[in-house]
Design a protein around this nucleic acid. Structure first.
Ligand code: SF4
Ligand code: SF4
Lengths: 150, 150
DNA sequence: TATAAATAAGATAAAATAGTCTTAATTCAG
DNA sequence: CTGAATTAAGACTATTTTATCTTATTTATA
């Protein structure tokens, strides 16, 4: 919708790699099974990330892929750009006929603010943050409390 | 990106119709020329809006399409649902592997807030608001001032 | 009533995206 | 050196989206 399917696969695999936080190579087979993505397709996607030097790969026995840098140094945006290119969110999703800097449509301010938020979050959130399961007891409990009500 | 191309065409045509604010039928040919969209393709798109009773159409000489209701009573969302269906923004564009209510990824709060904003704006903004060119002198002047600097 | 002006409907084509499969290249272990 | 494990590369297929083209159908008007 916002990101291509392919890109989401790449993100998921990258986050999974980050969560394994080892310096060992992980086989794409293992990733594909854990993520339930076709091995062959995931291979293609990860080849792209390897080309972009986000991942490092190694062939042969004990080979596989791993992050090329520390998970804290790879942003969400790095992966997105590698796969979906850097036009993400450049054009407006609304594309109203009156659209221009001089004649913005009524949604413009809100839209550009949201766009900024999304881009900002993509640029600042790193793989390690995504890998960290941020769920807290507080949230968990409030969810349980909510679930109990029904 | 967020909306399909087809949906954007539908929106543009609807807004253009709203801006013509007459009760007369407008030919799709005229709309397609003003919007620079293929006549045949636009015809298809508008047929869908007609089926959804957002537009009303009339065949034959002096025929065409027009809004089926007042522009203030048709929301952005009405058009979106008619063309892109009502799953818009139901699934998250990020789809991280840790995603669930219990184990949200670190982007979850910001994402759901933005999602809410988008849906809210789609639900509340009507075609007449979109048709109104909201540009003010203030904005215009600040733009000009900005442009002059370069 | 005949003709022309329109939309409706549906067949077809083209392009983009997603997915599969086969073969090549590299590397380790024996 | 050989064979197995692994990614790389590229051909191929399938699906979805976008676009075009053709043929109905409806309606006004001369
Ligand atoms: S004016 Fe702004 S929000 Fe509206 S269509 Fe243009 S870029 Fe998008
Ligand atoms: S936790 Fe929230 S933001 Fe993260 S992938 Fe799931 S729905 Fe999207």
């Amino acid at each position: 919708m916002l990101l291509s399917n392919t890109c989401i696969y790449g993100l998921r695999a990258s986050v999974l790699l980050a969560s394994k936080h080892g310096d060992k190579f992980v086989t794409i087979r293992e990733l594909s099974e854990e993520l339930n993505i076709s091995f062959h397709f995931l291979t293609k996607v990860l080849q792209q990330l390897t080309k972009s030097e986000i991942l490092q790969s190694y062939k042969g026995p004990n080979g596989g892929v791993k992050l090329a840098k520390k998970a804290s140094e790879i942003t969400f945006m790095d992966v997105v750009i590698s796969i979906d290119g850097n036009n993400i969110m450049k054009e407006c999703a609304l594309g109203m006929p009156v659209c221009s800097e001089l004649k913005p449509c009524p949604l413009h301010d809100q839209w550009t603010a949201m766009k900024g938020n999304i881009l900002n979050m993509m640029n600042t959130v790193s793989l390690d943050q995504l890998a960290a399961n941020r769920h807290t007891d507080t949230l968990y409990n409030s969810y349980i409390a909510h679930a109990r009500k029904e």
